[in-house]
Amino acid sequence: MSDLKNIVLNYVKNEYLEEGDDREVDFNTPLISGGIVDSFSMVSLKRFLENKYNIQIPDAKATPDAFDTVNNIAELLKEFNIQ
């Protein structure tokens, strides 16, 4: 499980933090409500998860809340039997 979380965390850091942005991001950091991932950019995270784990996340499940922390994302992925 922590492997999966680390994979997602690394993706978030590389994708959304600018060079020189030294904000601490961990499994519990609010990504969307904390302003790290804006609503325009969330699609990349969704696509990354879909491609990486070969799943389709329905739009109804890809809510800002479900994507708000790495822990929430891990919970969401459990529904697709990915741990």
Partner: peptide, 26 residues
């Protein structure tokens, strides 16, 4: 697919459009 530093009026216009949004680093 928008640069992350585009002007606020572009952001508003994109919000009004049904197309999918994504961004790239400045």
């Amino acid at each position: 697919i928008a640069d992350r530093l585009v002007h606020a009026s572009i952001v508003d216009g994109m919000r009004l459009c049904k197309a999918m949004t994504d961004t790239f680093k400045h």
